[in-house]
Structures are given as C-alpha cells and as structure tokens.
C-alpha cells in the first residue's frame, strides 16, 4: 500500500493550551514583579509625585542620594542591623540544629518551639516585643528592677534601640536557620562521624573539624538569604520605633516608604529602591551560584 504524503517531523506541540495554563500566573508576575522592577528603574530618573507634573531629571536623584546624610545613616543602620542579625542567627541556628539532629528526648517539641517565632506574624511579634521592652511596665525592666539592676529605655535610647530590634529579629529568624541547617546535616553521611569517632576525635573536634566544614555551603546559602531578608527590614521598625529615636533605627526600606508615601517623592523613593534592588540582586545572584554549586 502506498502512502500519498510523506510528512516531515510531525509534532504534537500544545502551544495554545500551554499558554492558556501559563497566562494568569504570568500576567500576575508581570504586574507584580517584572513591570515594577522596570518601572522603579524608569521612575528613579524622574521626579514623579502627586504634587506636580513629572519631569525627567536624569541622575539627579542618585546624586542627591549620594549627598543625603539621612540616607547615609539609613544605609549604615541597615548594615549594622544586617550584620547584627545574620551572624548570631546562624550561630544559634547551627547549634540548635546540631543539638536536635540526634535523638534527644522531646526532639520534635524543641524543633517546633524553635520554629514558632518564624510562624508568628511580624506585627504580632513586634507588638509583643514592644511590650517586653516597655520602659515602665514592661516585663524586661521589671525583671531587671527585681534583680536590683537599672532598668533601661530599650527602644527609646538611640544607643540601644537598633540592638533591641536586632535581638528580636534573631529570636524570630534562628528557627529558619535551624531548619536549613538540619536539612544540611542530614546530607552528611553518618559514616563520616563514625570514622572520626573511631579515630578517637573528641566531640568538640568533630564539631569544628567535620560538621562545620561540611556545612559550609549551607552556611553561605543561609548567609545570603538572611542578608537579603534583613536588608529589607520594615515592619518591625514601623511598629516599634518609627525610625526613631533620632533616626537611630531608620533603615533603607523604612526611609524609602517615608520618602514615597509620607513625602510623596516617588522618584526619589524609586532611586532608593533601585539601589536596594541592585544590592539585593547581587547577593541573590551569589546565593544562586552557591546553591547551584551545592546541587551540582
């Protein structure tokens, strides 16, 4: 039997139904992430505001930013906050993970407890901590007074406020670090530990010579996501200090919010946003690299 036609590469592509499946999600991603990222960049070269017609201002916003002492302080505060949160969070997370990676009584209960702060909404956490830090009736100062120590104005003293926020952030974040470290610990084969124990290595040596080095890629990855996350701190400051006292807790995102929504200087806010965005993107790219190398 002869066939009339000899088709070349028949394909069963599902283009249209695939696009239909993707369309809603892609429209949302476009509107909520892609377009805003592009818009931020464009707006940062304008003086867009509700108060007057929009003009192109070139790099004026960025030049202003360089000279803006308030912004400089916000950057310094953000870096202080980020460093202050990131390292203790990772250290506590690693300790908790190592402790709970073995069959301790109540292992799951401990793990759930350490993870509860992560689940708590930022505002609820901020409100509770604002109460703990309350200078007159707060439990913390009450306890200090009870012990005969001097109560301190935790959130009202410019030299203490940012560090007080840092303590709360560590409380809230170390559960995340613990979970990620636990995942990393599960990837270390048991026989490595057994070999080390047979060689007579004491526990602290095993920890520093085996566990810590073998977790290094997890540590780097965690470092990056914590930096990215803490860089964007906003809610806690909005609720607890409003950037004060004396601008000592003013951070980049908080100032960006103020600039855009309190002073309606959207163009200037967009320039801040672009700087923040590029900084975070750089860290994210490094993080992705590390993650790929780890998986690879």
């Amino acid at each position: 039997m002869a066939f009339e036609q000899k088709p070349k590469e028949v394909s069963f592509q599902q283009n249209w139904s695939a696009y239909a499946f993707l369309a809603p999600a892609l429209v949302i991603l476009f509107m909520s992430l892609l377009l805003p990222a592009a818009a931020t960049l464009v707006m940062s070269f304008t003086d867009v505001s509700f108060l007057h017609p929009t003009n192109w201002v070139g790099f004026d916003n960025y030049i202003k930013l360089l000279a803006d002492e308030k912004f400089g302080q916000a950057v310094a505060n953000t870096i202080h906050y980020t460093l202050g949160v990131t390292f203790p969070t990772m250290a506590l997370g690693m300790l908790a993970a190592v402790a709970l990676n073995r069959k301790v009584p109540g292992r799951i209960a401990f793990r759930t407890i350490f993870y509860l702060p992560v689940l708590t909404s930022l505002i609820a956490a901020a409100v509770v901590w604002a109460y703990l830090y309350e200078p007159y009736a707060g439990p913390l100062n009450n306890a200090l007074a009870g012990l005969g120590l001097t109560p301190r104005p935790w959130l009202q003293d410019p030299s203490l406020a940012l560090n007080s926020l840092i303590v709360m952030a560590i409380w809230r974040d170390f559960g995340t670090a613990m979970i990620i470290y636990l995942a990393g610990l599960q990837d270390i084969p048991n026989d490595v530990y057994e070999a080390a124990r047979l060689d007579g290595a004491p526990p602290h040596k095993i920890f520093f010579r085996i566990t810590v080095p073998m977790l290094s890629s997890v540590t780097f990855y965690l470092l990056i996501i914590l930096i990215v996350q803490t860089f964007q701190v906003f809610g806690a400051i909005y609720v607890m200090t409003q950037g004060g006292p004396l601008g000592s807790t003013e951070t980049v995102v908080y100032q960006m919010y103020q600039t855009a929504f309190a002073h309606t200087e959207f163009g200037y806010g967009a320039a801040m946003s672009t700087v923040l965005f590029l900084t975070i993107l750089a860290f994210s790219l490094i993080g992705t690299r590390i993650m790929k190398r780890k998986d690879g």
């Binding site: 066939f3 000899k6 088709p7 590469e9 028949v10 394909s11």
Partner: peptide, 11 residues
C-alpha cells in the same frame, strides 16, 4: 501517538 515521528507514515 505519544511521540511525534520524524519521518514516514502510520496507518
């Protein structure tokens, strides 16, 4: 018909 053919015919 789970994979498209590159050449030829099926009847």
């Amino acid at each position: 018909g789970l994979d498209p053919i590159s050449d030829g015919a099926i009847r």
